[in-house]
Write a protein that binds this DNA or RNA. Structure first.
Lengths: 140, 140
DNA sequence: ATAAATGCAAAACCTTTGCACGCCT
DNA sequence: AGGCGTGCAAAGGTTTTGCATTTAT
């Protein structure tokens, strides 16, 4: 995997400690954290970093297509370092968000383009349900 | 189609002129208006109605499952009187939102349940692209 | 050196809430 | 009569913006 700093440079983004920390955190987690969660997670390492910087950085990374913004229906956005389009599964019990690799997305796109005559360029797909862990707990 | 007033009563919602107007407007449009748009559209007929009432009414209708709330990634919600789950197509050029009747949604659900072991109860599916009208305009 | 990023505070935005008044059943 | 709905204003929370300072290239 390409160095994170290198990826920033290629997008003409200056490499600052704050940016690296945020980008790195997002690439190393699968928890789809919110801006607030990122801010708190990095608090101990970057005590002077402000929430505004987190938002500005996320905006820069988003525009550079290095991360994507998720809107799972909560009161805030979540962020995902996987930029290729893929559906997300949200557990309505524990609110965790899980990535889904979709093999059938291309098929669906094509069918929709045929049916509607839209040129599809992107999609946001969220499935809501109960995750295996929470199902188990309820059975107890 | 069942009388709108009747539908409200069945959900134990009192029938007020404001509620009827909002519910009626939503059932008679396919434009997926925002709260603000609803407010402005009804301004001439209900000059005293406040935006807070629009929000409260939308919340009541939503909880009664008479409408659904859409989050297409704008800075505000949109509302849809079709409550059954269906994908939406958003034109990235003119921002219009179009309903999609999906025959294959059941198939997709089943496959996802098999793949992930989630119990899926709902989904939000938004496709983004260029609508036929805007494609035509660009060719001119 | 220069342009961009940071951090603080304040603003902006949509949406929600509290409360008094009025209306529906 | 009683409770729910309305409307006004104020509050709420997340996200954005302005601006001076600091930092990266």
């Amino acid at each position: 995997m390409k160095e994170l700093a290198q990826q920033l440079k290629e997008k003409n983004l200056k490499v600052t400690p704050q940016r690296l920390a945020i980008f790195q955190m997002l690439t190393n987690t699968d928890e789809h954290p919110s801006a607030e969660a990122i801010y708190k997670a990095l608090e101990s390492i970057h005590p002077t970093m402000s929430l505004a910087t987190v938002y500005k950085t996320l905006d820069a990374l988003k525009k550079a297509n290095l991360i994507q913004e998720l809107n799972v229906g909560e009161d805030c956005f979540r962020y995902d370092a996987r930029t290729h389009s893929h559906p997300h599964l949200i557990c309505i019990s524990c609110t965790k968000v899980v990535d889904m690799e979709s093999i059938y997305l291309d098929d669906i796109r094509k069918r929709i383009e045929q049916d509607t005559n839209f040129d599809i360029v992107n999609e946001k797909i969220y499935f809501y349900g109960v995750c295996p862990d929470c199902k188990e707990k309820k059975e107890d």
